[in-house]
Design a binder for these strands. Structure first.
Lengths: 219, 219
DNA sequence: ACTTTTTTTTAGGTTAATCTAAAATTTATT
DNA sequence: AATAAATTTTAGATTAACCTAAAAAAAAGT
């Protein structure tokens, strides 16, 4: 049996792995789990004994296939529940994260299957993140960060790489909803901030930090 | 903050309180929590310090108003989730208990409010148990056990006092669903078993043990 | 009323997940 | 390459929830 806490570690290691090629450091995990490095070391040894991660001391961690499959199941549940909260219960996209953090640990394969069906087999969660399938496979999207887009190229807003309520509320305020068209009008050399046109209508000035966290696809 | 485990103790003490007037014994709690009496003693002291129960050693426990209000909130969530699982996800009434045992601990007032609304403010769960309101008040039903009903009185099946999957499957098999009419045709003196007519059509022979766990109302 | 039995509590331990402080190792800097 | 800095691990504690075995209290039986 795999505990609530272990599931959280796996999920976090998975997310860190998605951003880097190399092994994940103890400190990086500690930061996201909101614990101390010493606690992480203990847990990594435990996960390693359970064959969920491969870990050599001082050398960082990596998920094993088994570990990744567990992580993806948790992420699948998290994202399905987010869809439920937004589509069925009418929550805003910035309100669902903490609740889904709890719901993702509910154990019942049948529940997940039925929830998926009830929601109409959604492919994306309310933030545009893809929902892994029941076999633990994550769809590849190939989205780009808005920060990599050239001036005047038309793109569509497809997702966010940052899920804090603050950030999501800010996006909602300037009209940056999923599906709207975005066009980079001007890029400032010194800080890479940019002026963008949203939905062909309104204009906004956004920082590089914001642009890096917006996922878009070319038309 | 009140823990998952503490919530379970409160819920169990509440349920035991509903059956007896007097204080609840340590052993009774131990049986339902599936722990040992010594563990219960520890927990009762802890709950007592938090003012959730009144407890004098060797004298049994009772919920305080505060403790009861917490217990009812957990029960409210449990029953609302059961309605969700049956009405929206299509589970059978004998399949939902364990899943709801997990879901009942999800913490979010707003979630409960919206779920309640989404389900159309149900008054009863799939087993006919009343759903406490948002203020922690449990509706009084005044249902009787079928075992107390006189011969030939027409009653309606309103709920069950036992929720094991086995029992519920048995009821479903003999057609004893919520809402059907029941008429006691014959009562055997020696063991109080009875023959009943269900829905005005089929006849079944049931034991006293079964009859005691069926909640009915007179027409 | 006095034993015996049952129930409950206490005392002392265990496990999972955490912590702090010190030691070990790796990485970075000169 | 040697030293300094940063990271990671170990050692030893802590907390919540549990346990067993022994002691204490209450209840039951004679």
């Amino acid at each position: 049996m795999i505990s609530f806490t272990e599931e959280n570690y796996l999920k976090i290691i998975y997310k860190l792995s998605a951003e880097t090629e190399s092994e994940i450091s103890t400190n990086a995990v500690a930061e996201l789990t909101q614990t101390k490095a010493a606690s992480v070391t203990d847990m990594l040894r435990k996960l390693s004994e359970k064959q969920l991660v491969s870990y050599q001391k001082y050398q960082g961690v990596r998920l094993t296939d088994k570990g990744q499959s567990f992580a993806l199941k948790v992420i699948r549940k998290h994202r399905l529940w987010e869809v439920f909260l937004v589509d069925k219960l009418g929550f805003n996209w910035d309100e669902v994260h903490e609740i889904a953090e709890q719901l993702e640990h509910i154990k019942s394969e049948e529940l997940v299957r039925r929830l998926d069906e009830f929601l109409g087999f959604p492919q994306y969660d309310p933030h545009g993140d893809p929902i892994p399938d029941g076999y633990g496979r994550m769809p590849e999207l190939g989205y780009k960060n808005l920060s990599e887009i050239a001036m005047n190229e038309d793109v569509i807003m497809m997702g966010v790489a940052k899920h804090s309520a603050n950030f999501l509320q800010y996006l909602a305020k300037i009209g940056l909803n999923l599906g709207v068209s975005v066009n980079v009008q001007e890029i400032n050399d010194f800080d890479k901030s940019m002026t963008i046109k949203i939905g062909g209508i309104s204009q906004s000035f956004i920082s590089h930090e914001v642009a890096k966290n917006l996922l878009v696809k070319s038309i």
